[in-house]
């Protein structure tokens, strides 16, 4: 009989993956990584077929595809760490909103191109610095190899987003106004990226992930540089930070994404094609 196990993985030894004491925090953290990519990927894919010009339509669809690829890697590892037989698909399609661990920033509606590109930019800058740290420093070889793979793609995302923020910010009066409005809207949601909790503390202590606060400086430098070039005014230090997504407290928008994304697997459990 044929013995084929397609898509088995040849992976480096990683004792963290089977470390029972670390399991709850590691699983949560991996869900956060995966859910950020999944929900932003879904939001980005909403432009497919609706882009303002063909090139932007294709670029957004490709970006979304990269993010869905990252989701498969992060949630795949999350399922392995959890050890209860859930794979990336089960985690993506069969969890309820309260179990999602993404930042509120990535679940907000896609808005116009200004909101979409400003959100991509603010998140990409964070994603880029986070993945760089993970690829270079994470003590978990599995986390480091996923980060190294994703980083190559996210570098292109950040390049593209920076370019468009500059071109639209320093563009026409109308595009400038829309970009400033988008920035002002999204700014209060960007703080959540740097607010750690006990899960982050456990990951930092284990040497798997960085102290999020330590990424803020680099992120601000990247963001400030681009906004300046884009002739956009960086909002004053946000007094109020919208947060809670990482702990499962979401805006009303997430449920609508899940309704669309999960419908098929919920209505026809186990359907495949």
């Amino acid at each position: 009989m044929a013995a084929l196990e397609t898509a088995a993985t040849s992976v480096p030894e990683d004792s963290f993956v089977s470390d029972a004491s670390l399991r709850p925090a590691f699983f949560e953290w991996l869900c956060r990584m995966g859910d950020n990519a999944l929900i932003l990927g879904h939001r980005t894919s909403e432009w497919c077929g609706h882009g303002p010009v063909l090139e932007e339509d294709i670029a957004l669809a490709n970006t979304a595809l990269d993010l869905i690829g990252h989701t498969q890697m992060w949630l795949g590892l999350a399922g392995e760490v959890e050890g209860e037989g859930r794979d990336a698909d089960k985690l993506a399609y069969l969890r309820d909103a309260m179990k999602f661990r993404n930042l509120l920033l990535v679940e907000l509606p896609k808005g116009d191109m200004a909101v979409t590109m400003m959100r991509e930019f603010l998140f990409d800058a964070f994603h880029y610095h986070l993945l760089t740290w993970l690829a270079d420093n994470s003590k978990s070889p599995r986390v480091a190899e996923i980060a190294a793979k994703a980083l190559k793609e996210v570098s292109y995302h950040l390049d593209r987003a920076s370019d468009l923020v500059v071109r639209l910010g320093d563009g026409t009066e109308e595009s400038h106004r829309r970009m400033q409005d988008a920035l002002d809207l999204l700014w209060a949601y960007s703080g959540e990226m740097f607010v750690g909790d006990e899960v982050d503390a456990a990951m930092t202590q284990a040497g798997i992930a960085p102290d999020l606060e330590s990424l803020r400086g680099e992120w601000e430098t990247t963001v400030r540089d681009v906004l300046k070039e884009a002739t956009l005014a960086m909002p004053a230090e946000a007094g109020f930070v919208h947060k809670g997504g990482k702990q499962g407290r979401h805006t009303e928008h997430l449920g609508f994404i899940l309704a669309e994304m999960q419908f098929l697997q919920r209505a026809y459990p186990g359907a495949s094609w």
Partner: peptide, 22 residues
């Protein structure tokens, strides 16, 4: 890849996805 190897008469095979180096 699987098809090609089966066509060559191999049926005891396994494909593995390797991530690193990327």
């Amino acid at each position: 890849i699987e098809d090609k190897l089966r066509e060559k008469g191999l049926d005891n095979l396994r494909l593995e996805r390797r991530l690193s180096p990327p």
